[in-house]
Design a protein around this nucleic acid. Structure first.
Lengths: 207, 207
DNA sequence: TAGAATAGCGTACACGTGTACACTGAAAAC
DNA sequence: GTTTTCAGTGTACACGTGTACGCTATTCTA
C-alpha cells in the first residue's frame, strides 16, 4: 500500500521543502525566493514544482507549519528540563536562545512572515505563536495559581519579550547574546512579580 | 540663493518619497516596490529616478528616517499631554494607538524592515527605536527615581510590548483595538510594578 | 550674453520571472 | 498483458525588471 510512487513523490516534496529552507538566510527572505530557484536547488525542472505545490505561497505555509512543529518540540524539551528542577525563567530563556542559535533561519521565517504581506502567512504564524502562549498560560495558571486573565496577560507579555530578544539575538555575537539573555531574564522577572502583586489586587477588586 | 532649480528638484524628490509611501500598504511591502513603479507613480520617467537616489535602498533609508521623525513627533506630543496630568501609561498607549491608526503604513515599514534582509535597514530601524527607548528610560529614571539599569530594562521591555501591540493592532478592527489597548496597559503596569519591587532589591544587593 | 551644468525623457538591451503546453517513461490499475 | 495515471522534462512565450546611453530644454555661472 505504501506505493513506490507515492514514496518517491514524498521524497522530492521534501527536497523542495529542504531546498527552500536551505536558501533562507539573513539576507534572503522567503518572499524573495523564486519558484525557479527553489526548483533548481531541489534538482527539479521549474515546471515540476507544480506537481507538489500550486504556488510558492503553498510551499511557504508548509514551511511555517514546519517551523511551528520545531517550536513545539522546543517546548516539550523545555518542560522536561524544568521538571528536573531549576529556575523556570532561566531554563526557558536558555533553551530559546539555543533554538535561535541552531535554527536561526526558521526563526527568521516566522519573524518576517508575521509582519509580511500575506494575510494567510500572518495568520499562520500568529496561530503558532498563540499555541506557544497558551501552553505557557496554562502552566502559569497551574504552577502559580494565577487568575486566568492575569496568567494570560503575563504569558502574552513574556512570549513577546522572549521573541523580541530572539530577534535581537539574530544580529548579535556570542558576547551580546549572553547579555541579551541576562536582560531578558530580568525583564521576565519584572513581569512575573508585577503579575503576582497586581493579580491579587485585581482579584480583590473583582469580589 | 534658494535656486529655482534646487527648489524644483526638492519638489520632485518629495514626489518620489510620497509616491513610495503611498504605495505601501498591508499587502505591499517596500521591498516589493520596483524603481519603475515608484517613478511612474511620481510622474517621472524610470531613468529620472537616478537623479535623486542611486538605489531603491537609498530611498528606503530615507523613508525610515521620515518614519523616525514621525515617531519622535509622537513622543513630543505625548510628553505634552502627560505634563498636563494623567496616567502616564494610559496616555502613552492611547497616543501610540492613535499613531497606528493614522500612520499604519509607516509603522508597517518600520516593523518589516526591522526583520528585513538589509543590514542597513535593520540598523536604521533599530536606531530609531533606541532613541525612543532612551527617552523613555530617561523619563523613568527621573520621574520614578529608578536605578539606571533597572530603568533601562523597564524601558526596553515597555517599548517591546507597545510595539508588539501596535503590530497586532494593524490587523485588528476597532473593537479589538480597545481590548488590545487595555491588555497593553495592564502589561505595562506589571512591568512597572515588577521593576519597582525588584529594582529596590537589586539596589540592596549591590550595596 | 555665451557656455557649462543638470533635471528629465525615450530608446534599447539583457535578464529573470511564472506558467501554458505537449511529451516521455515508469508505476498502478484492471 | 493492456491500458491508464502521473511525476518529471523541455520548449516557448509574454512580461516586468534595472540601467546604460544619448538627447533636449532650462537654469545657473562667469
Amino acid at each position: 500500500m505504501s506505493g513506490i510512487r507515492a514514496q518517491q513523490k514524498e521524497k522530492t516534496r521534501r527536497q523542495l521543502i529542504d531546498a527552500a529552507l536551505g536558501q533562507l538566510s539573513a539576507d534572503r527572505s522567503f518572499s524573495s525566493l523564486s519558484l525557479r530557484e527553489v526548483a533548481k536547488e531541489a534538482g527539479l525542472a521549474p515546471t515540476s514544482f507544480y506537481r507538489h505545490f500550486s504556488d510558492m505561497d503553498e510551499l511557504g505555509l508548509t514551511l511555517v507549519d514546519e517551523a511551528g512543529l520545531t517550536l513545539r518540540q522546543l517546548m516539550r524539551q523545555a518542560r522536561q528540563r524544568i521538571e528536573k528542577g531549576g529556575s523556570v525563567i532561566q531554563i526557558s530563556v536558555r533553551i530559546f536562545m539555543e533554538f535561535i542559535e541552531s535554527n536561526g533561519n526558521i526563526f527568521r521565517l516566522l519573524l518576517r512572515e508575521r509582519s509580511g504581506t500575506s494575510p494567510a502567512f500572518r495568520a499562520a504564524v500568529n496561530r503558532e505563536i498563540s499555541y506557544f502562549t497558551l501552553e505557557l498560560c496554562d502552566y502559569l495558571q497551574q504552577a502559580n495559581k494565577l487568575d486566568a486573565e492575569v496568567a494570560s496577560l503575563q504569558a502574552n507579555a513574556a512570549v513577546t519579550i522572549v521573541f523580541s530578544a530572539g530577534s535581537d539575538a539574530l544580529d548579535a555575537d556570542k558576547k551580546d547574546r549572553e547579555h541579551l539573555a541576562y536582560r531578558t531574564i530580568q525583564q521576565l522577572r519584572f513581569i512575573a512579580r508585577g503579575a503576582m502583586e497586581l493579580g491579587q489586587r485585581i482579584e480583590v477588586n473583582k469580589s
